[in-house]
Nucleic acid binder design. Structure first.
Lengths: 195, 195
DNA sequence: GGGTAAACCCTAATGGATCTAGGAACACCC
DNA sequence: GGGTGTTCCTAGATCCATTAGGGTTTACCC
């Protein structure tokens, strides 16, 4: 009956590792308890339940991810910053698929508001766009486009959506190039291109 | 003991409706049996199990989705076709969230190869790009970029990822505009923009 | 160093999910 | 009307989430 030394933080970290190994959707309270050599019920002193666990995993993974991205972007601007952001984003998504999946779940609005990770992500993303000189609402539109492309690419790649023989890394770099050009020549409110 | 008249097709269609109502991940064999007023075990004469059910849902939803898109794109070219494709894509994803989620699961490679929906999707997507005059590998890169952006946007929107007050429809139209320009001025292999 | 309160982990039990095995009722076809 | 499958059911095994309540270790305080 040696104590296992469980804490909420250790459990959540263990769950994140487990998610990377077996997939986010296969992280169960039972599996987590097994990993710590403990009975299921023991986890309920540290976690309110599986929903709580998932939320905590999402927040942890979000922090870890934005830390990597922030480190990659630091000291860069313009296309350099964009490429660094994109590279760190995809690197994280591919290397830690369970953690990445965790970042994509729906989070309670009130929790999201007080999440340091989300605030930092917004800061860093908007900061990265500064060089392109966009004003609202174009800035928000651009952020949404970037996030969509990054997430969509990683999600499709992760689920085996890209079947063509073409190198996936090369396509990614092309996409980042294209995004850079899009940001540089953003179709602003007045100067719409009709064609 | 009146027979319920179950068939694989009816079950899969029912499961798709159920997915749109309660979410793809909440479609269970039990819930589906309940919906048809039948015991769980009865479904196993028509379906091999929950994995089989999910795969069939994915194939069905994929067909339905590409049908809508094909109808929208028919007779259009260039930016017109792109906008129609994008509109039909997002319309489907938002209106049938459970079916859309089904289309995103990982499908067995051998099954994917013989899927009519996947072949048609490829045809229509590449056809839509004809007007932009891209050659391989640029064409594949462009397809990947389009799919990523469309999927990423719908996925983020569906999980409540867009918190800013900016109108989501407007951002989407801007994204489609931006994609059109990207396709028109695609950074081809030789003429790379270094900046 | 011993007592005690809190923290930690357990047993036990409920309810819901997937899935298998085997049996009964129905439809159809001659 | 008697086969002959197909369709659906009962029963049961296994796994997961969660709650209730109880025993044991830890750490702190005198």
């Amino acid at each position: 009956m040696a104590r296992a030394g469980l804490t909420t933080a250790r459990l959540v970290a263990g769950a994140a590792d487990l998610a990377d190994e077996v997939g986010f959707e296969n992280v169960t309270v039972s599996a987590l308890a097994r990993r710590f050599g403990v009975k299921d019920a023991s986890l309920y002193s540290h976690l309110r339940g599986v929903q709580d666990l998932r939320t905590r995993m999402a927040l942890l993974a979000g922090e870890e991810m934005i830390d990597r991205i922030a480190a990659a972007v630091a000291g860069r601007a313009g296309k350099d910053a964009l490429a660094a952001f994109a590279g760190a984003y995809r690197e994280f998504a591919l290397r830690y698929p369970g953690r990445y999946a965790a970042t994509q779940i729906r989070i309670d609005q009130s929790l999201a508001a007080e999440s340091r990770a989300l605030r930092r992500t917004a800061e860093i993303t908007y900061g990265m766009l500064r060089a392109y000189g966009l004003q609202e609402p174009d800035r928000t539109d651009a952020v949404r486009l970037l996030r969509s492309t990054f997430h969509g690419y990683c999600a499709l790649e992760a689920t085996g959506g890209f079947g063509a023989p073409r190198d996936v890394q090369a396509s990614w770099e092309k996409a980042v190039d294209a995004l850079h050009l899009t940001l540089r020549h953003w179709p602003r409110e007045e100067e719409k291109d009709h064609d």
